[in-house]
Design a binder for these strands. Structure first.
Lengths: 223, 223
DNA sequence: CGGCAATTTGCGCAACAGGCAAACTTCTGT
DNA sequence: ACAGAAGTTTGCCTGTTGCGCAAATTGCCG
């Protein structure tokens, strides 16, 4: 009955899943996407080819599953928040906290993955799909929490999309500017700040691009 | 040299492309995604199977290519705008105009397509990818126009993502509330308004769920 | 008209998705 | 603790697919 069920079985499944994903990722990094077959992945993960197909619908899905963000935890943290808090405010703090718990290991992996998704359009599709699914779950909980209807009010969709776009945008800029683990949190905060200010055009905030990369050191204070 | 090349050839290519997409779409509507083969699509479009593969990497891509939004025109309209205008303000007006030019035919097609993408996850991936590509182009022009760097400033990414999320959210709500061609433009405007207000939580705008759902989604006969 | 470049097509092949059923592992009730 | 239920892995199989290659076809331009 319970999908979060029965100890050992679930653990093993999770382990195989990760095992396959890591094998796929490693192989694609080494040999390039189209020189990797399902059979190789299976071999690398000590498992039969047929089982790989049981877990993922294709190589691409497996590759992208490696080193993903911990979406369930983020959702849980969100639901733990006081019910009357502004959703975007809550998410801002959650993301900042999340960024601060990321290890160097994870950062490096993330950067590698971004490189892969920029090289292979087919991988990109699956990467985007992952974000999209998270956005969907987020939309649902936001709707529940604000008492709005997903079918008739755009707010849940817009808010969820905004939050996800913060992750994407901040992560991108962060990777391109050296992927310093310290700075991701600041970028999240900055992005949410821009959002709640209504995304004013920067031509009115800053005439030219600044020599120092970004205003990262600035702690976001309430405007 | 010129990608917008030499008359007849380009026209024919465009026609075959559409022809394939429409064939694929029609067949999938009729028989369901996994009972349609490339060979059937080819037959329906009066060309060889091999040629289908020349245009699309798989069925899914072909299906989704049918009845897409006219992204190039939207981009062009954006570039035609006065250079110092706030990007989101410009996009708001452009989308509203765009919505007003949509025919009933197109509306119906769009609704059907949404149904398909909700039924088949594999189609959804390609649908999302299409939006994502537009977002990418939008990001580039927004960056150019505001004099920001895509690599160091999050604004172009956030603004582009916001605009695209407006299209997605508004279209969704619009389809779910009957897909009345008159109302899409209003939804666009409303969504942009929420954005530039910083996406305030509706719990502070409206204490409880209201009898009249949303100003715009409500089927008011005051047309 | 004639040669050039782009496009279509047929052929072939390795790879793949996914149904099916048998072997095997974990779980549950007693 | 044990037997049967429930879930997972695996091998086998078949129709489908993606794509490289080269030949035939078609539009293009002097």
């Amino acid at each position: 009955m319970d999908s979060r069920g029965s100890g050992l079985r679930e653990i093993k499944k999770q382990m195989t899943r990760e095992s396959i994903a890591e094998a796929a990722f490693k192989l694609v990094i080494d040999k390039g996407l189209d020189h990797v077959t399902i059979e190789e992945i299976a071999q690398e993960a000590f498992i039969s080819p047929r089982t790989v197909s049981n877990y993922f619908s294709c190589k691409e899905e497996a590759v992208v599953a490696a080193g993903s963000h911990d979406w369930p935890t983020i959702i849980e943290n969100f639901e733990r928040r006081p019910a009357d808090e502004d959703p975007l405010h809550a998410l801002s703090e959650i993301f900042v906290d999340y960024a601060n718990t990321q290890t160097r290991q994870q950062s490096r992996l993330r950067a590698q993955k971004l490189e892969l998704t920029e090289t292979y359009p087919s991988l990109r599709r699956f990467q985007i799909a992952e974000y999209d699914q998270f956005e969907d779950e987020l939309r649902t909980v936001i709707a529940a929490r604000t008492g709005t209807q997903v079918d008739t009010d755009m707010y849940p969709s817009l808010a969820a999309a905004a939050a996800v776009s913060v992750i994407k945008s901040a992560t991108n800029v962060w990777v391109r500017s050296g992927a310093d683990p310290e700075q991701l949190a600041a970028l999240f905060a900055e992005a949410f700040a821009q959002l709640s200010a209504g995304l004013p055009s920067p031509t009115r905030r800053r005439p030219e691009h600044s020599p120092k990369p970004v205003t990262l050191a600035a702690r976001s204070d309430a405007s």
